[in-house]
Design a protein around this nucleic acid. Structure first.
Lengths: 342, 342
DNA sequence: AGAATGAATGGTAGCGCTAACATCGGCGCA
DNA sequence: TGCGCCGATGTTAGCGCTACCATTCATTCT
């Protein structure tokens, strides 16, 4: 029988342990541990015996105990502001694909755009002895900053570029805003409204707006901003279109903070018989598939989301496997997709 | 200084431990532990002293050690087949919201619709001493079945209803298929093609098809099936529309396995000037927001995805907090949304 | 031949926490 | 006054694993 050495009655079921496997295989516990953790350090014959014993007793490794003993959990804490936004889901998919291949387990946290919540999550995840932290954005509250400063493990701040404390993978949102503004100017638009939903939460949309405004102001054009409540992305886009037509009749183009809003506006225009881009041009940001399927095809900027995840994971893994601790910044870039909507 | 009792040099940084807090507060370690785990068992004055000491030394709880000692990790293993499909993301959001409120941490695994991968993930997660398992679907491979049978903790199988081993939260996919088939018959359609993408992977779409076929065959109608390669959901939907028009010219309606395909078909029809539903009617499944925004609005079935997550979490939590171990089945139902596309 | 090397394996001592039981006062009640 | 009880706190002994160092034995070098 497995696990029948004298034990206190703390667990109802006694899973077989390393010691049980060791006894079965006629080796010591540490040798079994080595078969699991660094098989090349064990003679093939011994390894085979041990592996047979593992199967025989139905051993399931206790990761908790191993992590405690080695002070290395192979947990990667990943903190995103939202799961409702497909953008972050794609980033997570990229992270997960890469980390899983290397035997790391993601601990996923969702802040709902709340920096206090973020801080709490960071604390919790440190409590799990996470090996690294991947967090969205460069803005954190003070308490969080302090915690992060004292932490010794790799930290990757993703999505945007800027003054990061360690690894930084993302794109230049201000430049993306400039790029789209230039495109719209190039199409002859002079009255362009920027539309966002809850700008103080989604401050990266704010960064894009800043770039957009910069370009317009260089041409002595004003850069009106419409910041709406969030209702549901498509809904808000539709509402924004109505408001712009009503309150900014001079506007010839709308630069939306994201593709969901822009798509909502185009679909609403379609239904209302408003011609895009003749009556009003529409641009988005993200490059979601839906934007490329609607008529007219949406002009937007593609952000390489899964790449952000993969690149972040790759750099974190390199660091964990011994790479020198030098801050790194990686610009994943973006691509202007010109559709028929502008 | 915290943590300067004699210790081996195994960790470079010595985080303060319970013992450090205890020394600072002038109590024993177990009292500090109690302040953290069952504060009501400690006299308020003592509790305050301990809490002050925790702040003073900057104590961060080591969850790994606690979980090992108590054989209770507060991890919930969650296994989904894909993150690319928004449906599962919404389920996860529901699970996460509920579990986080109760202090459980989700371990997320993604099988990519591969049952061997699923089995591997289950093993890994058991190794983390997970407190419960939430897994998508009722079909598992043999190895996985065996592992699950011997596991003593709550298991929730979600999305579909059927012969579950423990908790089961989902909806009746065959009935959903029947419901839509009846709706299409009611609209006068007699030649209806069912279109899916990679049916053997997404076998729940197969269950819906079975229901659909049943209803048609009751009326002595044939139930042709078109099962396509997966390219990208919208793309596949567009291609399916072309194929049906070419190879099933007699068809008056397409019943798509999901809204992404159906939306892709409607958008393609729009661009090609094919009139929906006059030339061909289109129905979907899921009730995604995009389907309700396009013109014509998509006829579909709304599945309560976040509800599945929440209900599953609620039942698992009840079980973990002491509810009796009785198998439970919960039908979250569905709702037919009649749009303009049929 | 004897020393030095290196590969394979083992013994010991924790990692930081909590379960289980022990202890200690204070209180109510007979 | 003495007994029993209960609430608050302490002592002890692990949870299952791995780091560290020791040991063993075959191989290579001088």
């Amino acid at each position: 029988m497995a696990g029948d050495k004298q034990r206190r009655n703390r667990k109802s079921v006694m899973q077989p342990t390393l010691a049980d496997v060791a006894r079965e295989a006629g080796v010591s516990a540490i040798t079994v541990s080595r078969v699991l953790n660094s098989p090349q350090a064990v003679r093939p014959a011994t390894r085979a015996t041990v592996e047979a014993a593992i199967d025989k007793v139905g051993y399931v490794r206790n990761m908790l105990a191993g992590s405690l003993a080695s002070a290395n959990s192979r947990f990667i804490a990943v903190i995103v502001p939202s799961l409702a936004n497909i953008v972050f889901v794609e980033v997570i998919a990229g992270l997960q694909a890469e980390f899983e291949r290397h035997g790391y387990q993601i601990l996923l946290g969702n802040t709902d755009y709340d920096l206090d919540r973020e801080c709490e999550l960071v604390r919790t995840f440190l409590g799990w002895s996470s090996s690294a932290l991947v967090v969205t954005g460069l803005r954190h509250n003070e308490a969080c900053q302090r915690v992060l400063e004292h932490w010794e493990h790799p930290i990757a701040e993703i999505m945007e570029l800027g003054e990061a404390r360690d690894l930084n993978i993302g794109l230049d949102h201000a430049e993306a805003g400039r790029c789209m503004a230039r495109h719209l100017l190039g199409r002859g638009h002079r009255r362009i409204v920027y539309v966002a939903a809850q700008l103080e939460r989604d401050y990266r949309a704010g960064l894009r707006f800043a770039g957009h405004r910069e370009v317009l102001e260089e041409q002595d054009l004003s850069a009106p901003l419409l910041d709406l409540e969030h209702l549901g992305q498509f809904e808000t886009g539709a509402q924004a279109l109505e408001e712009v037509l009503a309150h900014h009749p001079e506007a010839t183009a709308i630069h939306f903070a994201n593709d969901d809003l822009a798509t909502g506006a185009i679909l609403h225009a379609q239904r209302q018989g408003i011609r895009v881009p003749e009556e009003i041009a529409i641009a988005g940001f993200n490059g979601l598939p839906i934007g490329q399927r609607i008529t007219p095809r949406l002009t937007t900027i593609r952000s390489p989301r899964e790449t952000i995840g993969r690149e972040a994971a790759r750099r974190v893994i390199a660091r964990l496997e011994g790479a020198a601790r030098t801050p790194e910044q990686h610009d994943v870039g973006f691509e202007l997709l010109v559709g028929e909507s502008t």
